[in-house]
Design a protein around this nucleic acid. Structure first.
Lengths: 194, 194
DNA sequence: CGGTCTCTTGACGGAGTTCAAAGCTAGTGG
DNA sequence: CCACTAGCTTTGAACTCCGTCAAGAGACCG
């Protein structure tokens, strides 16, 4: 069953009673998502939190020149959202779509707010989740401010060794903040040098 | 009393009983911090969470070339930390110091963990805090990936209009991710053009 | 005042971009 | 199962934003 991964990842941090598990089961809805299909587009309000059980999603913004900037990849076991849109129920600035055929679990904002009341421990779980995400993004920001593209690429490879196999290079380029052309040149040059 | 600001900002999100307030009062310790004095240096373990009541602090990293990259400014009412070091009690990668003479409230990790048990609502408060911080950093990362320096500077000015008065330009440069020299040229050129 | 720190200015250099074109890969439909 | 197309990757030349280095001018503090 697809909720296994979700329960497991929650129970890594808090213990759940049978009633809790039931309540969780009722609140989440499973869904399949085909490659390149959207969960969210700019301007829409995101009213579901999304947990990935299979495949891989991404969130990204599109700037005024039409360039995509990937904020996050979400392989199985990860959450993905436009936090601002979800939390405050306002129009999104991000897009979320599937990189490959995927399966996700969704919970509406209303249901999640209910769950926080029914299972107060969930506050703890999502606090820890948010704090870890914060650590990750702060680290990435520092990387972007202090490292040249080559080092950012190396960091990406060592942090997400499994993702690198799966992703088209232009997505990696977008994530580390360079153009696909430059990443291509960079990789071929460093191959020549070493 | 200096704890007013803290209680107020907590009570914006959750309601506190008198017992809660007392427990909070006992756990926090007030401290003054002189300009340029450190709360944390790279390699130390941060074992206090810090809430600013007066003045202004900053957190930053120093790269291998000795350049500072400012992660956050913390005027009164803000929290500041090296989240990774605090949460996991491991050596810090950041520095935290005072930009001007300041006053802060500190709580040890042990005491905070106690408070989470004594006042479960605090989980909610800090979850919301972490989620808001996450939103901010995601937005800033997108800005750094998609906007040229001039636009990042404009965004900074409109987001932190009061801070801009107070900060030396080289700190702003470091925050938006350019050299002090380049920021200086940028400002004088755009003055000429408009 | 004298020294340190910040800001300014200029010439030069380099990391990364842009634009364009060609080769390659993979999905898609007939 | 092949043919065709669309999207991904590569490559090169010109260009730009921003960094580096260096030197001088203010500004602030003891």
């Amino acid at each position: 069953m697809s909720a296994e991964l979700l329960l497991q990842s929650i129970q890594n941090h808090i213990s759940l009673s049978e009633t809790d598990v039931l309540a969780l089961g009722k609140s989440f809805r499973a869904r399949k998502l085909r490659k390149k299909h959207f969960i969210l587009q700019e301007g829409e309000v995101l009213n579901h939190a999304i947990f990935v059980t299979q495949g891989c999603l991404r969130s990204y913004s599109v700037d005024k020149n039409g360039f995509e900037h990937i904020l996050q990849f979400a392989p199985p076991g990860w959450w993905i959202s436009d936090m601002k849109s979800f939390k405050r129920q306002e129009p999104a600035t991000l897009y979320i779509d599937a990189i490959e055929d995927s399966e996700i679990l969704m919970i509406s904002k209303a249901d999640l707010d209910q769950l926080y009341l029914a299972i107060p421990k969930l506050e703890h779980f999502f606090r820890v989740l948010a704090e870890n995400a914060l650590i990750t993004f702060q680290h990435r920001l520092i990387d972007n401010l202090s490292l040249p593209a080559k080092d950012r690429y190396a960091n990406f490879c060592s942090t997400y060794p499994t993702l690198i196999q799966l992703l088209p290079q232009k997505y990696v380029a977008s994530y580390i903040g360079v153009t696909p052309e430059f990443l291509s040149k960079m990789l071929h040059q460093s191959a020549r040098k070493s």
